[in-house]
Design a protein around this nucleic acid. Sequence first.
DNA 1: GGTTTTTTATTTGACAATCAAGATAAATTG
DNA 2: CAATTTATCTTGATTGTCAAATAAAAAACC
Lengths: 140, 140
Amino acid sequence: MNHSTPPDLTQLLIELYDKISSWEHTVVKDSGLSPAQMHAVEIVGHHQQLRMKEMAELMGITTGTLTVMVDRLETLGLVHRQANPNDRRSYVIVLTAQGQHHFNAHHKLHDMLTEELTASFDAQEKVALQQLLFKLVRHF
Amino acid sequence: MNHSTPPDLTQLLIELYDKISSWEHTVVKDSGLSPAQMHAVEIVGHHQQLRMKEMAELMGITTGTLTVMVDRLETLGLVHRQANPNDRRSYVIVLTAQGQHHFNAHHKLHDMLTEELTASFDAQEKVALQQLLFKLVRHF
DNA sequence: GGTTTTTTATTTGACAATCAAGATAAATTG
DNA sequence: CAATTTATCTTGATTGTCAAATAAAAAACC
């Protein structure tokens, strides 16, 4: 007996966060995009349609920063500024086919990571983790 | 009945990661440090003694980047380059008293976040989450 | 309907974060 | 002791970031 006691929850959350962070960093580098660019692609991919304002809000950056970032992403052919028919001040940002491809590929990597991390979990443990994380995430 | 089914594990991990990320961003801003600087302080605080090489490795950045970062942190009075008696090529980076203070304060915020997120968890759920996260983190 | 205010996005100027490549100095190896 | 490897720093280029100023359209207000 005597399983070494696990670190406290705070420590575990920090550790999980750090490890996901460096994993993300590694896999993103292989994609040719910067972390910030991939994050932008993920945000647009997840929400499908976003105005600059909303997108900046979701990413926690200013619209000024986002303007130049979307400029580059457009040059790279990953996103597109569509005219917003309801409001001529704003655009709707959407993924191009190539952007969508990056998004899908990246999401697949995330799925593989989850697989890997929970490879030794039985079905019951997976459900338990799922429910606990759901409860956790809801309290932010 | 009929609890709406929670998102899959991948989605939950991404969501958790994103939310910790933006929480971190917010609280760090209030501290006057940049996210990268706080991360550096956390790394040094956690490991106590680090050479540049090791520190760069842990942070996933090059030593070139770290040199200028530690320069600034030293100017800000948060860390100190100590001579390494075993190897005159390298330094040992340590926190100053002020750096330690920042580290402690930030860690306290992490504890408060954990408290908050698990406020509605009973003791059994907390232990279950702890054990599952421990198992998860070990598989990176 | 016309004026004022608010909202949306861009531009600009400054600085921090990052890398790759090259330089320097110390340690290690043969 | 010479050659190689290692640890750090420097430099030049690019990206990420903000705050403040600008411009244009929409909304609010009489």
